[in-house]
Design a protein around this nucleic acid. Sequence first.
DNA 1: TAAAATTACTTAAGCGTTTAAGTTGGAGAG
DNA 2: CTCTCCAACTTAAACGCTTAAGTAATTTTA
Lengths: 345, 345
Amino acid sequence: MDMVKRRINMKDIAKEANVSVATVSYVINKRKDQTIAEATIKRVEDAVKKLGYVPNLAAKALVENKSYLIGVVIPQTEPGKQFMFNNPFYSELLSSIEFVARERGYHVLISGTDVDQSYLEIAKKRSLDGIIIVGIHPDNYYENLTSTAIPVVLIDSYCNNLPFKTISIRDRESAKIATQYLINKGHKKIAFASGVITDNGVTYERYLGYKDALEEAGISVNKDYIYSGTVSQEYGKELGLEIAKKDDRPTAIFSTADIIAFGLINGLKKANLRIPDDISVIGFDDTWIARDCDPLLTTIKQDVFKKGEKAVDLILNGNNDENENIVLDIELIERESVAELKEVF
Amino acid sequence: MDMVKRRINMKDIAKEANVSVATVSYVINKRKDQTIAEATIKRVEDAVKKLGYVPNLAAKALVENKSYLIGVVIPQTEPGKQFMFNNPFYSELLSSIEFVARERGYHVLISGTDVDQSYLEIAKKRSLDGIIIVGIHPDNYYENLTSTAIPVVLIDSYCNNLPFKTISIRDRESAKIATQYLINKGHKKIAFASGVITDNGVTYERYLGYKDALEEAGISVNKDYIYSGTVSQEYGKELGLEIAKKDDRPTAIFSTADIIAFGLINGLKKANLRIPDDISVIGFDDTWIARDCDPLLTTIKQDVFKKGEKAVDLILNGNNDENENIVLDIELIERESVAELKEVF
DNA sequence: TAAAATTACTTAAGCGTTTAAGTTGGAGAG
DNA sequence: CTCTCCAACTTAAACGCTTAAGTAATTTTA
């Protein structure tokens, strides 16, 4: 007697339906290239229901060398720490990736970036079907990944020399648009507030766009107006307080993330400046936080859902050899945090 | 000639090190119950390095019926939608679960709640080593899960009749503490603002705690002061505007989530009420948002990291038969959003 | 009417591990 | 000098699935 509760497998189904395991496999996978009698299909399906069969993906993964698993790597604030989730942009992105992946029959494995263990190792171990890397990471990350056949999609990274697919927006142009918007409103003293500026990151691109706009308008870049810290409300707030105290205060600030802008607004208000009357702020991303600042934040909207969706699509449908780069559009959302500058003589 | 790039497996290592696959397996898993000569261990380890061997977890999972994978289920706002990530509490919790799991050599599979496919099925399919269910879910979720041997940990759920481990705080008591704090500050007209109140959810418990405090203080519960919507800043804001217009306005509001409190503050300010001078607000969770409202939000702090950590520990170390319930402590954090009520005669 | 094609299957090898059970040679015991 | 014991291995089955190749019966084609 078989007292131990065994896992129901294809063999059990085969026996119950009076067919071979191969047939069961064909029925379960609905294989179009196999011809199977309607009656047989029904017998198998009935057996599956009757016995409560659930396929074992580990076995499937073993023979197919495929896991129906997509890895998502999210940047950490610090090594050995948790990953960055105070920025709603990442939350929203992850949520959309998970949603789309699930629709496609895939699951999502999340991971912060571990210094000891390269993500490539995880990918190989788990036979991941693809890796979506969000944001910028230490260089050694990418190095290893090039040696593998696993599709890698980079979101918000400008490592153009690497054979990876990317999905991005025109960060430089977008930043230029934001800055030009401020310039068109009469601002000349425009500050730049961002997280750490890394070589291949979006932040650097956005910095370039900011510079482009200023230079094109004949405004020289004031090094005193360039602020770079962490992508967090804390930094924004700190910065708001600092800027408020400044002698030659800027009249507008372009922030590369809503969450920094949010902090900025808090800090500036704390220092009794009115926004946008005393100082204007423009953000980036259009996360929910932009819709719930006071004043409502004028910002560059990027379609976060689409960003996640396209990333999954690139992994699943993309030709692995091709080096695709998808570029999404942005939109400037005018709300309440930017004012026309009254000329002061 | 073997032109196709094959995956390096134990057999290759065995050949290279001149031992059997079994020995390789023993060395790689550092099995204490096997005696292996130092020299042999070194030979195997060298071969692993030389050939760049990475174990195949699918194969391991197949024989061990174990995946080193923990599933985390996060509530969705609506069926067929993405999961709830506007609430920083969930983000922070997920981040800590992932961090702790990774430390322990496990990975995290995330999933929103899919109506069609019960999570039990995913769990079986993937041989998950455990499931952490965050927040409250439709009843049929739990039903299926009882039939399996997979360890399930419920975070923020009061389904006490089910054979699951839980990890929670004393929600009722905590809400009572928050409400009593307001009462001690002289408030009598205290509103309650929450998400949907479900039978087994934390929200109901917090509602009870709110009621307890009022009743104990001899204040009758005013149905007009009970607001229940969604756990979002939008709802909070809407509510803030609504409450501001009210004839018999409450003097304080207890919100069951910081994010609602955040919205409330925005809405109330929009309606030209000063906080805490005109109306006090107390939150719950102490997510980062509490530290970045203006005014800073007085709130009930729960240790989100510990909540995640304990959940992982329960999955990995907990005796599967025992029905453990871990209860964590909370702390009231006094900030700026609650004022002493000046008696008005 | 025999050959070819098609339908509806089955057989069995293989994916990369783990592990219970066996083997071998040498050290220590009697 | 044989016997036992132990260290240091090896052998081979099993985990649950996929799939190329085979088979047998039936139908179509020339």
